[in-house]
């Protein structure tokens, strides 16, 4: 079943506030095996010009996965999740995510395509502080492989 092109531009209500914690950043950096002190040590982060520890460039996936669930749960998005693989991912940082940030995620369907029987769904998630400062934009493209 091809995805409905009319879904493009559909936006979902903003998420609850996600408070970025130092421990969560440290856990994520450790999972990447990355000991960079700007992820772990507030003093090192400040010496590098950041107000607090910052998150690795791919940390936003944590919020983007959560926010993307509203698309998964939308009954109008007719995609076979048992056949889905992650096709592409992009992060555009307006500034680094840092400990203490209180972020709100808003998901929007950016693109739908069907190529050679494969459905492709691109979801954009805009992360902003609760005061409205843009922090990061993520774009996730999922591919549902067509039945052979």
């Amino acid at each position: 079943m091809a995805l409905d092109a009319g879904l493009v531009g559909r936006s979902y209500p903003p998420s609850a506030v996600y408070e970025v914690g130092r421990e969560k950043i440290a856990e994520f950096a450790a999972a990447l095996g990355d000991p960079d002190p700007v992820y772990l040590d507030p003093v090192a982060a400040r010496a590098a010009g950041h107000p607090d520890v910052i998150a690795p460039p791919t940390f936003a996936i944590v919020l983007s996965l959560g926010a993307g669930n509203v698309v998964v749960e939308d009954p109008d998005v007719d995609i076979d999740y048992s056949r889905v693989v992650h096709g592409e991912q992009r992060f555009t940082h307006h500034r680094p995510i840092r400990a203490g940030d209180r972020l709100v995620a808003t998901a929007t369907i950016d693109a739908v395509k069907t190529i050679a029987g494969n459905d492709m769904l691109t979801t954009r998630v805009d992360l902003a502080t609760e005061d409205g400062e843009p922090v990061c934009t993520t774009r996730s493209m999922l591919v549902a492989r067509g039945a052979a």
Partner: peptide
């Protein structure tokens, strides 16, 4: 995970992970 490990090569080279303003991958 692969993408997160890969970008370490860039953050280490750049000297500050906060300098990364855009990162995109295709699996």
């Amino acid at each position: 995970l692969t993408a997160g490990i890969a970008v370490r090569a860039v953050t280490r080279w750049a000297g500050d992970p906060g300098a990364v303003v855009d990162y995109q991958v295709r699996f």
